[in-house]
Write a protein that binds this DNA or RNA. Sequence first.
DNA 1: AATCTATGAATGAAAG
DNA 2: CTTTCATTCATAGATT
Lengths: 513, 513
Amino acid sequence: MASPNRQTWPSMFRSKHASQLWQSQPDMSSSPPSLVSGSTAGRTFKSPFSGPEERNTDPKPRWNPRPEQIRILEALFNSGMANPPRDEIPRIRMKLQEYGPVGDANVFYWFQNRKSRSKNKLLRAAGSGAASRAGAAPARACAPAARQHAAASPYTTPQPKQQQLQAPHVSPTMMAPTSSSSSSSDRSSGSSKPVKPTTAAMDLLSPLAAACHQQMHYQPLGLGLQPATVSAPAATAALEEFVPTATDVEPIFLQYPQGHCLSAGELAAILGAQYMHAPVQQPAPAPASPAGMLLGLCNELAAGPTRSGAWIGAGGLGQHWPSGADQLGLGKSSETFNASAVATDVAHEDATKLGLLHYGFGLSSPPAVNAATTSAPTAVLPLPASSPETGAVTVASAAAAAAGLSNLFATTTAATSEAVTYSHLQEGEAEAADVGFAGTGVVPRGAAVVCIAGTNAVCNVPAGHLHVKTYFGEGAVLARFRSGRFEPLAVDASLGLTVEPLQHGDIYYCVLI
Amino acid sequence: MASPNRQTWPSMFRSKHASQLWQSQPDMSSSPPSLVSGSTAGRTFKSPFSGPEERNTDPKPRWNPRPEQIRILEALFNSGMANPPRDEIPRIRMKLQEYGPVGDANVFYWFQNRKSRSKNKLLRAAGSGAASRAGAAPARACAPAARQHAAASPYTTPQPKQQQLQAPHVSPTMMAPTSSSSSSSDRSSGSSKPVKPTTAAMDLLSPLAAACHQQMHYQPLGLGLQPATVSAPAATAALEEFVPTATDVEPIFLQYPQGHCLSAGELAAILGAQYMHAPVQQPAPAPASPAGMLLGLCNELAAGPTRSGAWIGAGGLGQHWPSGADQLGLGKSSETFNASAVATDVAHEDATKLGLLHYGFGLSSPPAVNAATTSAPTAVLPLPASSPETGAVTVASAAAAAAGLSNLFATTTAATSEAVTYSHLQEGEAEAADVGFAGTGVVPRGAAVVCIAGTNAVCNVPAGHLHVKTYFGEGAVLARFRSGRFEPLAVDASLGLTVEPLQHGDIYYCVLI
DNA sequence: AATCTATGAATGAAAG
DNA sequence: CTTTCATTCATAGATT
């Protein structure tokens, strides 16, 4: 038997794709092993017994994802594709193959590991601090509650090594470069015809998109806002607990109504996916959140940068921490370097391919949104209530405003292009933000704030990893405003917690999709 | 909730057997790893939180199958027991217990995972490479068709590191050691009386055997060769497609006539199974292949090493790749070492117990065989046709010859014993093989060849996972000739594809049972 | 060189 | 059976 080979999945592909176009690189995968081997195996173990079993040796070279590939994978992951359906894997692999040899197995393992590890990481982070106790009494929304891992936050904790970790770096992968869509767009451009999204839109989506679909409900742009479906209660409930305890994480999440909505990442992923095999013309589905908040997704190709974005700008509130800038990309020189390099090199290319620039969100007027958000009002707490040490950040509401998601991404990622768009967006929203803050008094404190589209609620959320959906409802997406631009906050696909812990002093905007 | 104990099945048994006799060994499951690391108790981890539940500490160490156990399991699996009936599980477990603590649940899970994973693996493998494109036009048998992942093959790819290669290790699990039957035979010996197989023979089989039975048709030895049932067409049809595409894998397989035949592995498994609970005296069923090729299975106990095996030797064709020897077991020192160790230690023991040495195949003169194989002739392609890069291996036919399966196993596994038998077999077939090659010119190239018993057809098959039945008919079993011995090629029970991909440059022999 | 860390790979166990 | 979770193994590359 064979047991020998350990690589179950891996082997198979290994050979295949690898060669395609990438062989050039010495690196990877395809390598050697699979064909041959089977070997692997072994459980190295010690088991004394029976002696020698071990064996193995299998050479099996392990796949070395290139940065570009990682970016793509990260983008997908951050977009909510925690574990791609089996059918999507080959598709993803194909995409990755453009950058080097990869096997389906590699993709499969990557997602598995990514999910598993991000989960553990977050759990630890959360767990160590408040989480553990949080389990007992989930603070109510906006409550000062969580001081989750006080220590956990990089700031407070003396990090031995510079823990590159997850920490602060905004993963480059998430950012969508602003590069012009022109280049790779040929394919995408091919689909100049914006499909009118309809509930049937999903049918038009590429398989990948379809896959993503599992995690969201599409709403035709036209339909836009189906306020009806909204249920304030759900939103309210969500607010009750914001920081799932380590153990409860799953349960808590699950307790909310099913249905999902697109996060910025998800959108990106989907778009990218579509791009992979279909022209941009693909219909853009609008996600509907069970919670009642809706955002129509529309194909911007034809329309151009129109958009009633869901992101709220916070022009006036500039005083995020001084560290803000550093955290963004400077944590590590290498990191920073890569980010930039990638951005120009790959990221940007990817962005184009992902089609991020071709789509935008259509924010539906959300009666539901208000209802949902409004339910939280009681939760609105005076900032002072939460002590700084708790690490809680303040959440402030602002009038809902619309901004093109594409713009958001553009600004987030590349300072180079689309700056205009960004500013545009920012300006448009500035007022609203201010308004919101003014009312709450949050702004003055300089505390981090999260603006909730369409509401005026203000509350502070625990600094640290936040379960956005639980806290703000299914359709919520957070963005951090730093250095004059918005950075979408990546949410761990598996846990639903923000990949980076919210920082006290930072300004966050909540987008209710 | 969850998470805590996950073990559904396990719980029940867990305790039971595990301790039985094996605890002694440090190694195992329980042991080291578990205790230590997981500290078992709980997820050691970090999960600080919530403390509730946890506790118990029952860390539930996960079962760590020993190599011997794996071998047995693999043997069973490869023998076609994709998913053993419930009743068989305890039986299998008992057998495994001889080597260490195991629970029924472990066995259950093992089979489930094995099946699932081998399926995925193969699907992808097939899919990614040739499969996708194969889908379009399944080459005809022996066609140069697949150039599945050309680049993929390790050979072509420049591996940065020394890719210890994949290679070739013949999994020890597959091999049946040549050890003398004496030792464990006591039980088996008890059944000195060879039961005359009859159609009713299956009734006499132990449950385990019966289980295996699902995948095969028993033919009484006496009946031997029921040429009548043979249908050339079926065989022909099979030849039409050899490499299922990723997507088509299942369908393709299913399109063939039902009915199964014993592969070397199956035989071994069955025998072993019988051994487990019944004395050797069990009747040996003869598998009948719907395709029309038949092989009588007889109990050699009484007769001694007689045998008209179905395996064809290729004494003269020594020129498999130079790497052949290396690949076999030298790829890595550890590998080699282990293999041998296991062979003497475990494997061999297993072999004895499996009763491999007590049985032999009776090759029925196969009118059908010829018909079936012959149908392929047109497909015979000049090796040159298939470029090396395509990764296709050449299949050559040779005059049918008979060799004892038992011998095959013996030679395959242990160089130590039964060498005589092997040489015997080899010699007998050398001529035939040469003849076949001579005609095709295959040999000269040093290409891998597959000799089909009873035919002269020569063709190349795609390197990579091959669906033997589809390619050569229901009764076909492939063996690789390496380092002077035959290694039966394991076939995935669920997919029917060879577990290890055929290697370009290797020599394969096809046995039509 | 020894170590550590991040992460690819593999696989037992379970849930659905 | 399919998918997911949890653990563990093993190794590349950074770190000291």
